[in-house]
């Protein structure tokens, strides 16, 4: 695969995020590690609360004030963790961009769409307001916003959710980033719009050769556009591999359960989807062994005693009793 030869655009190692809360520390991300190469899209999947968003907010330097971060993240060769806001601002919005989970609230209500797109172009690329506006218009057209010239002067509340998410994408792409983090870019939208936005992201990634992290809890989305997939559980990566391998032959019982709970287009049965049994783990009281243990059918003493390490090279899994190929 040519992607293996492409240089690493974003390299995350041993990233941990702990929140100080009134009820004591809450560890949201533990030893998160992932590399994303140029032109590659890595899907990051997991249940709600698995730590997907916080991992990448940490990379962006956008965590809440009560967060403590440790570990490494490098944009190319530039370290990101522990840098000052002023230093991070040399990368954020230019080389490293993020699209957020909630398009309804992620735009500034009192600024027009045009201003919000042009703003970072003017700031980072030091071009005139007119040139930035022209570029904003071109971006809006590129993300397939209908009636783009008129949209420039509209406020976010005049746009539908799908349109707002396209505007968010336009903002993220404004300065041609090397790395794009898309945090559930389609969850808030209806199914047809979802498909359009995903197709758009896939196209933009191809055309621009960006590295992309696509955060989602929907394996179907990953199947559509990602090259590789990282499965997160309780703040850790528990399985990593190419989309093809992981979806076809999951090794971690949690991945298998996720897949089983996924609706399939070719599914003719009308019975209920098998939900994953048990409760998602409480990040304040993780068991000493495997965090998925309490919900796992294959659990035994080893699993309860020791947490499995993430092993393997290209294809990795953190499980004492991984599933064999069917």
């Amino acid at each position: 695969m040519s992607q293996d030869e492409a240089p690493v655009a974003l390299d995350i190692e041993q990233l941990s995020v702990v929140f100080d809360t009134p009820d004591g520390p809450l560890s949201a991300v533990n030893d998160f590690a992932l590399e994303i190469r140029r032109g590659e899209c890595v899907g990051v999947v997991g249940e709600s609360g698995a730590g997907k968003s916080q991992s990448f907010l940490a990379v962006m330097g956008l965590l809440a004030a009560n967060a403590r971060v440790s570990g490494q993240a490098r944009l190319g060769t530039e370290p990101l963790i522990g840098r000052s806001i002023a230093e991070l601002n040399q990368f954020r919005g230019v080389k490293l961009s993020m699209i957020f989970q909630d398009p309804m609230t992620s735009l500034t209500p009192h600024m027009t769409v045009g201003e919000q797109i042009a703003e970072s172009i003017i700031h980072h690329l030091k071009i005139s307001a007119d040139a930035a506006r022209a570029r904003a218009l071109a971006l809006l057209e590129q993300v397939q916003v209908t009636d783009a010239p008129r949209r420039l002067d509209q406020y976010p509340h005049e746009l539908s959710g799908g349109m707002r998410q396209r505007v968010m994408i336009a903002i993220a792409l404004a300065c041609d980033p090397e790395v794009l983090i898309a945090d559930e870019p389609t969850t808030a939208l209806d199914v047809t719009i979802q498909a359009q936005i995903l197709a758009l992201l896939a196209k933009l990634k191809r055309e621009r050769g960006m590295a992309m992290a696509l955060i989602t809890h929907d394996l179907g989305v990953v199947a559509g556009i990602a090259d590789r997939v990282a499965v997160m559980y309780a703040g850790r990566v528990v399985e990593l591999g190419t989309v093809h391998e992981v979806l076809k032959a999951p090794k971690h019982p949690y991945t298998a359960a996720l897949l089983a709970s996924m609706p399939r287009i070719d599914d003719t049965g009308t019975g209920p989807l098998p939900a994953i049994g048990g409760q998602p783990p409480n990040p304040r009281r993780l068991p000493p062994g495997c965090a998925f243990g309490p919900r796992c059918e294959r659990v035994d003493e080893t699993c309860r005693a020791a947490r499995p390490a993430l092993t393997g090279h290209e294809r990795r899994v953190a499980c004492h009793h991984p599933l064999e190929r069917p």
Binding site: I85, R92, G93, V94, M98, T105, S106, T108, M111, S120
Partner: peptide, 21 residues
């Protein structure tokens, strides 16, 4: 709020984030 996070993600100086957004 989320829109301030977006403004920060754009790499704008904190001053502008506060005064403008």
């Amino acid at each position: 709020t989320n829109h301030v996070r977006t403004a920060r993600a754009k790499g704008l100086p904190e001053r502008r984030v506060i005064l403008k957004h």
